[in-house]
Amino acid sequence: MEMKEMTYKDAIKLAMSEEMRKDENIIFIGEDIGLYGGAFGVSVGMFEEFGEERVRDTPISEAVIAGAAAGAAATGLRPICEMMFGDFITIAMDNLVNQAAKMRYMFGGKAKVPMTMRLPFGSGTGAAAQHTQSLEAWLCHVPGLKVVSASTPAEAKGLLKAAIRDDNPVCFIEHKLLYKMKGEVPVDDEYIVPLGVSDVKREGTDVTIVSYGTMLYRVLEAAEAVAKEGISVEVIDPRTLYPMDTATIIESVKKTGRAIVVHEACKTGGLGGEIAAAISESEAFDFLDAPVLRLGGLDTPIPYNRNLEAAAIPTVDKIKDAIYKVMNR
């Protein structure tokens, strides 16, 4: 496969651009995504390539971004939306949750709502409580929505293209700290990472750790560190958070007998509980040598102060501690 090195955010732009070149029905709407290129510069150059009909700056109106996308999707377009910050999805929630997600079911299967909602989530930017949240669990709780989280530049391209081609409303989570990360990305404009397939990011035999987003890299770092002490960690990135490929996770836990879930989102009500429950309810339960641990963000808003902010989410040390805990039981 021919590869090219590029940043995560350029991979997102590439996915959108490739799909827009193939399908006239795809439009891109959001705040300051046009000439400005988006608050994080993801779409720089797209306005010039596709013009104002297809790359549409909206007013600061998140509700109508989501609602107009749903209405446009139901009538034949395939809109991609950008929420400037994922946190602003709160303002779009009625249109996403009560309209887009439910149209198909409550109309007896006669609506199709192919829209993609791009959501920059996550902390580490010093932007304090309203620009740093990780709200994926809310979205996973809504039947009718699909939720995707990309961890690498290549996956950002492949998963976003799959999301855009999907005939359902898909929430596509981007972690802001990954935007500048570089990686090899397939050049093929048909490169797709299918939704609903987990990826084993590191193979191991002693502990399974499920993680995604920036936390994935802390988990990999912790796994590397404990490997020197003879502990073999298997790391699984679900990539699609709903509907999640739990089969891969369950198979892994049957092999390792120990499981930890690590995410940045607040622990209470987070996906960690859901994944832990999926493991406990499965045949993997009989293979468990230790309780399934959840490592999540503290149940606080994200604070501003650099040290406090860092303390609010799992660290490499905390992940290592969790590994020792399940190993030494």
């Binding site: 609602g67 107009a68 209405g71 999707a73 139901a74 009538t75 249109n95 309209q99």
Partner: peptide, 9 residues
Amino acid sequence: CISAGAALT
């Protein structure tokens, strides 16, 4: 909002 989107189509 749905109507605005349908009108956009």
